[in-house]
Design a protein around this nucleic acid. Structure first.
Length: 418
RNA sequence: GUGGCUGUAGUUCAGCGGUAGAGCGCCUGACUGUGGCUCAGGAUGUCGCGGGUUCGAAUCCCGUCAGCCACCCCA
């Protein structure tokens, strides 16, 4: 094939697209009842925005972004995640002046140049929310519970919720130092990746899969004991609210973040059913990011869900998102029938009835077969005889009952008028 | 970015040196204007692409592209 979609980017064709739409609508509805309003930001931003928010040393910024210089010499990047753009838009619009609290939801494609794999693509899609201007740990807990409700609504079962506190700029540096020293002391036992991590992102060593490293990490100092008073209090409040909300979770002190802006609460929705991609939703608190990007000093909490991963999980669990659309099929035989019925069909469609018809004068048998394949609940049959009599045969596909309906009554037959 | 596996009809796959096959799907038909079942016929492939070895390649070799899996990273 000469023209194909590019590596790691796929087309979403029917009937899959219907499941996507359904999933998006469900998210909009569920999150909408918690007050999240949709924002749509451009997919292209100045590269600088991502460097500033995500962090210059992160893998995403270092080697996964699609960046290029445009004709005016600006460095631009396709967004690798949604928070930076959303926060930028929040600041740029001055929304914080109108209201102290802003809750946003976004849905759309993100781009990361990684090696594609199951549940991991170069263009992938996220549904994310951001709550700006709320300091209380209640919002952290509420978002986790909200997400849990969403997944339950979709019928997902086999997952767990893990939470952790990453500390803040008061206590994290201290812990990093202690942990760094610990790593250095274990150097001889660590794998090559972890040795590199000592420089780049030491905490990553915590969830290394190398057996030797796992062994060496057994008695690693965990952040819990090194949190400052405020972070400790925040963490226990989050847990308290989660219990109030009836959301089951486990504390996993080995949760780490690939993006620099996270502080305190970090949480992940984990499954074992996606191969090595075990998280299908993740988020946390990012107080300080808004200020960092030039806005007011307000807190932020948000998460992002991987649409492809959720869909994969639903497939795995045999869960359906397709809704069968009820349609009326018009089986037309001969040109006179088409001429007479085309205006009526159009009227029905204008009234919102889903109508399909035969365009190419196929045999009645083949038209019936198609009607069946399309799950038509009713077939309207019109040939020369019916044209002569001025009536249509209306066949109920479930009961096989047929009745004659005058052309003039057809629209009324299908359209409910209140 | 690293390593491994794969690439044949719409689809799932068989064939593994002598110029292609099955199931499902699709189309047509079964007293000529009525679906889902059954039966009988039928269409469809530059065997991912490019090069090489060979009298001859879907089958062997190299490259390339794509997919999958793991690492890395992450939603």
């Amino acid at each position: 094939m000469k023209y194909t979609s590019i590596k790691g980017m796929s087309d979403i064709m029917p009937p899959a697209s219907a499941a996507w739409r359904k999933l998006e609508n469900t998210a909009l509805t569920v999150f909408g009842s918690y007050g999240y309003k949709e924002v749509r930001t451009p997919m292209l931003e100045k590269t600088e925005l991502f460097i500033r928010s995500i962090g210059s040393d992160t893998a995403v910024v270092e080697k996964e972004m699609y960046s290029f210089k445009d004709q005016s010499d600006d460095m631009l990047s396709l967004r690798p995640e949604g928070t930076a753009s959303t926060v930028r838009a929040y600041i740029e619009s001055g929304a914080y002046q109108a209201e102290a609290v802003a809750k946003y939801i976004y849905i759309g494609p993100m781009f990361r140049r990684e090696r594609p794999q199951k549940g991991r693509y170069r263009q992938f899609h996220q549904i994310g929310v951001e709550a700006l201007g709320i300091a209380s740990p209640l919002i952290d807990a509420e978002q986790i519970a909200m997400c849990d409700h969403f997944f339950k609504e979709l019928g997902l079962k086999d997952y767990s919720i893990e939470i952790n506190s990453l500390g803040c700029k008061e206590c994290r540096p201290g812990y990093n130092k202690i942990f760094g020293d610990f790593l250095t002391s274990k150097k001889v036992h660590l794998c090559g990746d972890c040795l590199r991590r000592i420089e780049k992102n030491p905490l990553r060593a915590l969830d290394c899969k190398n057996p030797a490293c796992i062994e060496a990490m057994k008695d690693a100092p965990l952040i819990g004991e090194y949190l400052c008073g405020d972070c400790k209090a925040h963490m226990s409040e989050v847990q308290k609210y989660l219990k109030e909300l009836g959301t089951k979770f486990v504390v996993n002190q080995r949760i780490v973040r690939g993006l620099d802006y996270y502080v305190r609460t970090a949480f992940e929705f984990i499954t074992t059913k996606l191969g090595s991609q075990n998280a299908f939703g993740a988020g946390g608190r990012y107080d300080g990011l808004v200020k960092e990007l030039g806005g007011p000093d307000v807190s932020g909490v948000g998460f992002a869900l991987g649409v492809e991963r959720i869909l994969l999980l639903m497939e795995e669990g045999g869960l359906q998102l397709k809704e069968k659309e009820a349609l009326v099929f018009f089986a037309l035989m001969g040109e006179p029938a088409r001429e007479r019925l085309v205006p009526i069909i159009d009227k029905l469609r204008q009234d919102g009835v889903y109508v399909e018809l035969d365009y190419d004068n196929h045999s009645l048998k083949s038209q019936m077969r198609r009607a069946d394949k399309l799950f038509a609940h009713t077939v309207v049959i019109i040939g020369d005889e019916e044209i002569k009599k001025g009536v249509a045969i209306v066949r109920n596909m479930h009961t096989k009952e047929q009745e004659e309906v005058k052309f003039d009554d057809l629209v009324r037959h299908f359209v409910r008028v209140d």
